Computed example of a mutant assay.
Amino acid sequence: MLRGEAIASGRVHRGRIGAAASTGVDDLGGLLAEFRQRAGLTQQELADITGMSVAGVRDIEQHRVLGPRSDTVRRLIWALGLSDVEVQRLRGAAARGRDLGAGRPRRDPARG
């Protein structure tokens, strides 16, 4: 599904200023999941719109990737139609993850 098709079908909605502020979610995975669900999108639909893989979306939402590349963040912002406040929150969370050196997927040491 392309972004234009998603918008035409009503699946992507322009975010409202402060709409996610009430939850207190400040981590990237939590914000992405909240914004995606509010837009009425599945992980697969968001992946299709952004050109990402479902695993890529899932890895961010499940905190396996805490600091994705700036281009990935831009595509997510575009696909979700976030407000300026929401854009700042998402970018801030991604930057904090990158500052921790957490751009790559975290591996469970028990799994080898």
Rank of each mutant, 00 (worst) to 15 (best):
R3A: 00
L100V: 05
G81D: 12
L28A: 09
L76K: 02
G97L: 06
D108P: 01
I77H: 01
S53W: 02
V25Q: 14
A55W: 08
Q88V: 10
G97D: 06
G29E: 04
V65R: 15
V73F: 13
E45A: 13
D59H: 14
E5V: 08
I7K: 14
A19D: 15
R38A: 09
I49K: 13
R104S: 13
G4F: 01
G56M: 07
A55E: 13
S83W: 02
R106C: 07
I49P: 00
A39S: 15
G56R: 11
R14C: 04
R58I: 01
R11H: 09
G24H: 06
G29F: 01
D26W: 04
Q44L: 11
E34T: 09
G97I: 07
P105W: 00
P105H: 00
L32D: 03
V12M: 13
R107H: 10
R111F: 08
G18T: 01
V87R: 13
G56P: 06
R75M: 11
V65P: 10
D71Q: 12
G112V: 02
D99A: 14
I49W: 08
L32I: 10
G81K: 04
G92Q: 09
R91W: 02
G4V: 04
P105Q: 09
E5N: 11
T23P: 12
G15K: 00
G30M: 06
Q44F: 12
D84M: 05
R14M: 08
A6R: 03
A102H: 04
L82F: 00
D48K: 09
R75C: 10
Q62M: 02
G30V: 07
L28F: 01
R111L: 14
E5A: 15
L76M: 15
L80Q: 03
S9D: 14
E34M: 12
A110M: 12
R107N: 08
D108M: 05
R38W: 01
A93Y: 05
I7E: 06
G18L: 04
G24Q: 03
T72S: 11
A21L: 06
V87W: 03
R74S: 14
G40V: 02
L90R: 06
Q62S: 14
M1R: 07
R96V: 08
G29T: 08
M52A: 15
G112N: 09
